[in-house]
């Protein structure tokens, strides 16, 4: 049966451990087919959120649902539908890759265990290492086994905790490709990550948490715009001509234009909304555009947000 609502839903879900607040009441709705990134420093509540959704810990406030199933009252239904990949591969190292997957497939009582395992092994490219002991594999290969284990029962929702943690660039790129392929196949992914460039590349939306509190939520582009301003850098082939300058200055909602030898930087009211008009004006003025790039990246936006909240904390403490 297909669930019509969000794949993952948190409704004021929060968690305290004694006096310590690990996660303040959080509202989140992740539609099917989305890759959603949870960002934040250590201790920000990312893993707590993931653990609540994986039915490992209960929320002390609010509710959380996976494909409409409550993580507390319908925990078994949730467990059947999610695939979890912890930060560390957490595999049975004395057993072979295949034995690890056999256990997972059997525990999910799949109708055709052998086919499911073959498919998972093929997906992560581990057919040739299937009969190797996990303890003999490198970190990158173990991460692949952990992903194969998480997907062996073809879950519709994947919860990935730092999926590319400790991987070299090519292994991390392979992991990204695999996550994209899973989403293309219809899965919804919620992932924790410290790799902001990776989050920017693959996440449809991200949330930034700090001290268990949601600070920002949106697409990477929206976050960049909100936190760094809507600054756009335009590179031209050659110095800006007079018609080009006039076209730029005539663009609605533009300000702070800084002319440079090979282009210009400007601020738009809303980069997403106003950039097409700017480009249309440039094309009309016969400008030779090399690139139009929104200034800054998710990492800069994240660091700006962290610095801003740290300043606010200091001011609050001083007051």
């Amino acid at each position: 049966m297909t669930h019509a609502g969000p794949a993952i839903e948190l409704d004021r879900a929060g968690r305290t451990f004694g006096d310590r607040v690990a996660l303040r009441p959080l509202d989140l709705a992740i539609p099917p087919g989305e890759i959603f990134g949870l960002l934040g420093p250590n201790g920000s509540g990312k893993t707590t959120t993931l653990r609540i959704l994986a039915t490992l810990i209960r929320p002390t406030t609010g509710t959380a649902r996976i494909l409409g199933h409550d993580v507390v009252t319908a925990a078994m239904d949730v467990r059947r539908r999610v695939g979890v990949m912890p930060e560390k591969p957490s595999l049975y190292e004395r057993l072979t890759v295949r034995d690890n997957l056999v256990f997972w497939a059997d525990a999910h009582t799949l109708p055709d265990t052998r086919a499911a395992i073959a498919s998972a092994l093929a997906f992560v490219g581990l057919e040739a290492r299937a009969d190797d002991r996990v303890g003999q594999l490198s970190k990158g290969w173990r991460q692949r086994v952990a992903l194969a284990r998480a997907i062996v029962h073809r879950p519709r929702v994947l919860l990935l905790d730092e999926p590319s943690s400790g991987l070299d660039p090519s292994a991390a790129a392979a992991m990204e490709r695999m996550i994209r392929a899973l989403v293309a196949d219809g899965a919804t992914v919620l992932m924790n990550t410290h790799r902001l460039a990776e989050a920017e590349r693959i996440c449809d939306r991200v949330a930034i948490l700090r001290h268990g509190e949601l600070l920002e939520l949106g697409t990477p582009r929206q976050l960049r715009a909100r936190l760094l301003g809507n600054v756009v850098n335009v590179e031209l082939a050659g110095p800006p001509t007079l018609p080009v300058r006039r076209a730029v200055e005539a663009t609605p909602a533009i300000s702070d234009v800084r002319w440079l030898p090979g282009g210009f930087a400007c601020r738009l009211e809303d980069a997403d909304r106003d950039t097409p008009a700017l480009i249309a004006g440039l094309v009309h003025a016969e400008a030779q555009i090399v690139s139009v790039v929104q200034a800054g990246d998710l990492e800069s936006a994240y660091l700006e947000l962290m610095a801003r909240t740290a300043r606010e904390d200091e001011l609050e403490a001083a007051a």
């Binding site: 039915t55 467990r79 059947r80 560390k88 591969p89 957490s90 190292e93 997972w104 525990a107 999910h108």
Partner: peptide
């Protein structure tokens, strides 16, 4: 100790 308890507890086992 081997870190497998957490994923084990996400299996559909009461």
């Amino acid at each position: 100790d081997q870190g497998t308890l957490e994923p084990l507890l996400t299996l559909p086992l009461s």
